[in-house]
Design a protein around this nucleic acid. Structure first.
Lengths: 139, 139
DNA sequence: ACTTGACTTAGAGGGCACTATAAGGCTTAT
DNA sequence: ATAAGCCTTATAGTGCCCTCTAAGTCAAGT
């Protein structure tokens, strides 16, 4: 079987794009649980790559380490916690959507400001029109 | 005139939703420049409200304090810096768009995971189908 | 044999953006 | 007059998430 390959921390670090420091930190926090060989060396498997991949997606939504820890704890507690896990992720989802919406709203203002600069630069908008006045066009 | 009202820091703080600490911090960083009365008290005007409003929009796009400081410095240097200011904001715009796209991609994964939980909960997806397998449906 | 990389615990350092305190003195409103 | 709120500078603390070091040991590959 090809999927039983064991990765040592350095190799794994390269694969998932996290420093060995971070990997050990996550392990301390209980987010990643590598296996150990006879001599106490950590090793990671394909399953760990997938798990870290998922964790990174969650982190990328803005999920905090503490929430991730909760999630992991629920997972460890078995199938009975599935509704709780779903609820936790649904909250993260909601927060992430709100965050994106907010960013987009702020980006809109920035976009307008850049348009305004462009208008000013090519003189298609009055030199003296204020940004506030300009913005009102879009309200 | 109604627009010459002067706001003291406490009042202004309420208006813009920043603590007095933060207002003084921003002032230290050169981002906000309140006026002073005869006795040395800070006061803010309508123009300052608008400026802080814009600053908060910029911050909301993910623009850093250092970039904000650069922007303010360019503004102070006059109209000749308009192209530089535009370039600075265009970079922020680009970064913000990239950030939003990344968040959305990560959110997609989270959405799928929640769908998967829902499928599992109402048994419309096999109990044993792994998340990874499920995810492949969308690749 | 030797180099490289792994192991441990515990704690320090760093970046960012605040947030707060101290301590003493002024101003403004009731 | 009294209290609330403002002023100053300088400095420390907070929260998050790493990032790194120390200091000594151990194991694997060339």
């Amino acid at each position: 079987m090809v999927n039983v390959k064991k990765y040592k921390i350095g190799e794994f670090s390269q694969l998932v794009g996290l420093s060995t420091f971070t990997l050990r930190y996550y392990e301390n926090e209980g987010i990643i649980k590598p296996h150990r060989d006879q001599s106490g060396m950590r090793y990671y498997t394909m399953a760990d790559i997938k798990w870290v991949g998922f964790v990174l997606h969650l982190k990328g939504t803005g999920m905090k380490i503490t929430a991730l820890k909760e999630y992991v704890a629920l997972r460890a507690a078995g199938d009975a916690t599935i509704p709780a896990r779903r609820a936790l992720l649904a909250q993260v989802q909601k927060d992430c959507e709100a965050e994106i919406a907010e960013r987009q709203a702020n980006l809109q203002v920035l976009n307008h400001k850049i348009d305004w600069y462009d208008g000013k630069l090519d003189a298609s908008i009055s030199e003296t029109e204020s940004f506030e006045t300009y913005l009102k066009r879009f309200e």
